[in-house]
Design a protein around this nucleic acid. Structure first.
Length: 618
DNA sequence: AAAAAAG
């Protein structure tokens, strides 16, 4: 039986004997060992802090209407003109234009839309039934208040509690029901109103916390609401209204799949473009019309240089895994796309950056892309939940294979019939991935591998084969570390530990999803001393058993070099760098500081938002 | 130092 996230929140709240509102905000030590997200740690009761978010929704819309004569793209309730197109959308049940004044817009490809494939893979008749089926009575929705949230910026719109509170449009609402999303997740509760208010956003929220929907819903809704926008018609150039960038091809595909569900029968067309696949097919898709383009940077640059895509009409820009997108390898390419092509500048487009981790230096880079943005940090570091059991074992380099074999044997025995349990093994190099896959297969363990030296076809095949359980072991490089939602991953093995603790966080976050518990095992040896300290800290914060030998390694590590030293910033980076100046306290490794007394750190916070309908969280 | 992203 499925448990919803709200259930778990309600449970954890009822377990808590120390509600945040009990007035003893100064008493920050929880009554029991609970996980506290890094950005809320080391708080001191502080009075010199900004006020909590305003109680009244700000209608602040500080950007000018896009494109001049078309006017503001957002409008106060009630005064919205009816953009319904006569004779349009006579298909019946999904037509909402008449009721709500919603514009089931079309960019001139109505015929294609009539043939739109149902991305839900069912007949989709019982939308309402599906909703009630999922509906849970007796949920303590007040418990949502216990999710630690930190926001900063001007006039932060308050969070919402339900999808119904926000006017996303009936067509989108139906898709939300089809997806069986009952309640917005914390990041959705907070981010959607911010985006709907037209504000730029930098959001810290772990993949798996529902962030894809958090930026897709407002984008799709916003495009639906737009007055029909006359886009230039170059001979072969297309003009998307929204651009979503992600660091890997597979992640772009996944976002595209999700976005297609959300946009079903809304008239909003979503297209994906990524490298390694024949460009001609993607060009044909683009020519059929595109509102939302999901892409990896390389292929997009190619399309831009061929003048097959223009960014001139972009109103929404979303960077997924934004810290990765702005790291050394990607930054020039991203800068080129965002700053050196024909995209409207900050202020004339809406920019949304999402990431689990936002190091200060990356925030600084990112702020170039933003205009008067709101910083949002929601909840825990997803992978550090109680749902994931983290283990570290000392394994010499030469013993790794046999040790892995032992683990796989043990797991075989505990395998539950019916559902294949999957093991994801991370290694450092592409060569190492191939070698380990070969060795595993040779030893009777059906394995496959995914890494950047494989063809896109091989990569997608490997992922399918793994997901289906045909090869229940996947050996992967960091290409699979971020964002991928693979159900039934029971075990993540860090065969080679990464050098960066953030990568570790993302890797183990591939398990412990959909309310299932997950196991993460790391092989540690002398080659990994650079991560010892941050690993020990992370595990301790997540209430995991830290082996004494690891603690010794951790204490031995000097404070000098190492990319894991985020001096003053903290590992989570869940803090607005704009506030560093006034709030940096020397001793405070995690940045500390409290933003909103109203949110505080609830005594019973320990659940995280693992349990729930799996896909609802990405 | 490695990985990812164009062909």
């Amino acid at each position: 039986m499925r448990t919803s996230w709200a259930d778990s929140v309600a449970n954890s709240a009822s377990e808590s004997a120390a509600p945040a509102s009990s007035g003893n905000n100064g008493l920050l030590r929880p009554t029991r060992s609970t996980y506290v997200p890094p950005h809320l740690r080391n708080q001191t009761p502080s009075t010199d802090l900004p006020a909590p978010p305003p109680a009244v929704q700000s209608q602040a819309n500080d950007r000018v209407g896009y494109g001049g004569p078309a006017g503001g793209s957002r409008w106060p309730g009630g005064s919205r003109p009816d953009y319904g197109r006569p004779g349009y959308g006579s298909g019946g049940r999904t037509t909402a234009a008449a009721a709500g004044g919603w514009n089931n817009r079309s960019g001139g490809w109505e015929r294609g839309r009539e043939r739109e494939v149902n991305p839900f893979g069912n007949d989709d008749v019982e939308v309402d039934g599906a909703f009630t089926e999922q509906e849970n009575t007796g949920i303590n929705f007040d418990a949502y208040e216990d999710i630690p949230v930190e926001t900063s910026g001007d006039n932060v719109p308050p969070p919402v509690n339900t999808f119904a509170e926000i006017d996303l449009g009936e067509a989108l609402n139906q898709n939300i029901r089809r997806c069986k999303y009952v309640k917005p997740t914390p990041v959705q509760r907070n981010a959607i109103p911010i985006i709907l208010a037209g504000r730029d956003l930098m959001a810290c929220a772990q993949t798996g916390s529902g962030k894809t929907a958090a930026f897709c819903f407002p984008i799709i809704s916003g495009i639906m609401r737009e007055q029909y926008v006359q886009r230039p018609r170059g001979p072969r150039t297309v003009y998307p209204l929204a651009l979503i960038l992600s660091p890997t091809r597979e992640l772009s595909c996944q976002i595209h799949d999700e976005a297609r569900k959300f946009s079903y029968q809304t008239g909003v067309k979503v297209v994906v473009a990524y490298g390694g696949a024949p460009i001609n097919q993607q060009l044909r898709e683009l020519e059929r019309g595109v509102d939302v383009l999901v892409a990896t940077p390389g292929r997009l640059v190619d399309l831009l240089e061929r003048a097959r895509v223009s960014l001139q009409m972009i109103r929404y820009l979303a960077l997924d895994e934004a810290d990765r997108m702005l790291d050394m390898g990607f930054e020039p390419q991203i800068r080129k796309i965002v700053e050196q092509m024909d995209m409207p500048p900050p202020g004339r487009r809406q920019t949304m950056l999402f990431s689990a981790t936002f190091p200060k230096e990356i925030q600084r880079l990112a702020s170039d892309f933003l205009s008067n943005y709101i910083f949002l940090a929601v909840g825990r570091v997803g992978s550090s939940t109680d749902l994931i059991i983290q283990r570290v074992e000392y394994v010499h380099e030469t013993d790794k294979r046999s040790h892995l074999m032992d683990l796989l044997h043990a797991q075989r025995e505990t395998e539950i019939h019916g559902k294949q349990s999957l093991t994801l093994v991370f290694v450092e190099t592409k060569k190492g991935a191939d070698a380990l896959e070969y060795w595993l297969c040779g030893n009777g363990f059906p394995a496959t591998t995914i890494h950047g030296d494989r063809t896109q076809q091989e990569r997608e095949m490997a992922l399918r084969s793994f997901k289906s359980g045909k090869t229940p072991i996947l050996v992967a490089t960091d290409v699979a570390a971020r964002g991928l939602d693979i159900p039934h991953v029971a075990h993540v093995v860090n065969f080679d530990l990464p050098n960066d603790i953030d990568d570790y966080v993302h890797r183990i976050g591939r398990t412990g999803r959909a309310g299932k518990t997950g196991l993460a095992t790391a092989f540690f040896n002398e080659n990994n001393t650079s991560i010892a300290r941050s690993l020990a800290d992370l595990m301790q914060e997540a209430n995991q058993e830290v082996p004494a030998w690891l603690t010794r390694y951790a204490s031995r590590v000097s404070y000098s070099g190492g990319k894991n030293r985020r001096t003053g910033g903290g590992r989570f980076g869940g803090r607005d760098f704009r506030r560093e100046g006034s709030f940096n306290r020397g001793m405070d490794y995690y940045g500390g500081g409290n933003s909103s007394g109203g949110y505080g750190v609830p005594g019973g916070y320990g659940g995280g938002y693992g349990p729930g309908v799996a896909s609802a969280w990405d």
